[in-house]
Simulated scan of single mutants.
Amino acid sequence: MLSVGTATARGFDVTTSRRVVLDVEGLRMRYGTRDVLRDVRFRAHHGEVLALLGPNGAGKTTTIEILEGFRMRSAGRVDVLGSDPAHGDERWRAGLGVVLQSWRDHGNWRVRELLAHLGTYYAPYSTDTVQRPWDTDELVEAVGLTAHAGSRIRTLSGGQRRRLDVAIGIVGRPELLFLDEPTAGFDPRARHEFHDLVHRLAHDHATTVLLTTHDLDEAGKLADRIVILAGGRIIADGTADELARQVAGEDEVRWTRDGERFTHTTTDSTGFVRGLFARHGTAIAELEVHRASLEDTYMALVRQEEAAR
C-alpha cells in the first residue's frame, strides 16, 4: 500500500499535532467465508476533506456504514469522534452529518420550515465549542436556497433538491460529515458552488468531511487526501500529487522539431525541457508535458490490485 505514515497518541497525530477525528485499524468484515474488508486502516484529521475512492464492490459502502454505526464489523478497531461507532449514543450521533445519494421524502414541507424543524432535534446537544444547530436562515443561504426558502420541496429542481440534501446533513453543525456522491445531477455552476461550500465547511468551520465519489476530478479538487480501496483493502493513501509521483514516476514530454514528432519519458521534466531548449532553441515547437492525473493514478493502482489477486 502507498501511504504517508503517521502515528497517534491520545487522539492526536504526533507528527502534525492535529486532532484525529476518525481512526481505523485492522478493520475486517466477513460474510460467511468471504472477507469483504481486510485489514483496512486509515485516519482523518480535524478539518480535513478525505476522499474514499474505489471501484464498485471494493467495500466503500460497508466501510462507511461501519463508521456511521449502522453495521457491525467482524474485527478491528474503529474510533470516530472519540467513540466506537458500534456503541455510539445520541450525543455522539449529533456530531455526525450524513448526506446520502438521494432523499425522497418531505415533499409537502417547505424548505425553511423543514430545516427549522430538524434543527430542534440537535439543540439539546450543543457544547462549549459547538453551537447546534445552524441558524436556519444562515443554513439556507449557505446552500444557496434563499430564493426557495418558502417553496415546497416537491417543486424544487434536481440540483436544488440536492442542495437541500446537504442542508439536511449539516443542520446539526456536525464535526464529521459523510458525503455520498454529493454532486450527482448537478450542473457545472451548481457543482462549483457546492465545492465552495465544502471548502468553507472544512476550512472555516473545521468540519471533517469524508467524501465518496466516482468523479475523480471532483475528488482531486475537493480532497486534502485520498484513500483508495480495492479488493477489500486500502491500496493507497496520500494527496493526489503524492500518489501520482509514487505510482507514475515519470512524466511524458512531447515536442516537434523540424516537422518530426518526438516523445520522451523522464522523472525530471523541468530539467529535460530546459536542456532541450538549450540544445535546439527555437526549433522546438508544439511542446507538451503530460503528468499523471488522478485518473491515471487510480486506474494504475486498481489494475495492479486486480493483477495481484
Rank of each mutant, 00 (worst) to 15 (best):
G54S: 03
L53M: 13
V111W: 05
L52P: 15
L53S: 09
D89S: 06
S126Q: 07
R104H: 13
D137F: 12
L2F: 12
T8N: 04
T270K: 12
L2P: 00
R132V: 08
D224L: 03
R303M: 05
P133R: 13
L139G: 07
R91C: 11
F178H: 07
G69C: 10
A278P: 00
T263R: 14
R30K: 15
L222F: 04
H264P: 00
Y122K: 12
E252S: 12
D79I: 04
I66P: 07
R93G: 03
F178E: 00
D241F: 04
V40E: 03
R173W: 01
K221A: 13
E68H: 04
L294I: 09
R152M: 15
H117I: 03
R291M: 08
L114M: 07
R245Q: 11
A147F: 02
S17V: 00
A149N: 06
A244N: 09
V143R: 10
A9S: 14
G76E: 14
R10F: 12
T282P: 03
D187S: 12
A219K: 11
H214D: 07
G185A: 12
G159S: 01
G59N: 09
D180C: 14
L145T: 08
L294E: 09
R254A: 15
V4F: 08
A94N: 02
T208Y: 11
R257D: 01
V198A: 10
T120A: 12
A236K: 01
R73Q: 09
S293Q: 04
S17K: 09
R152Y: 06
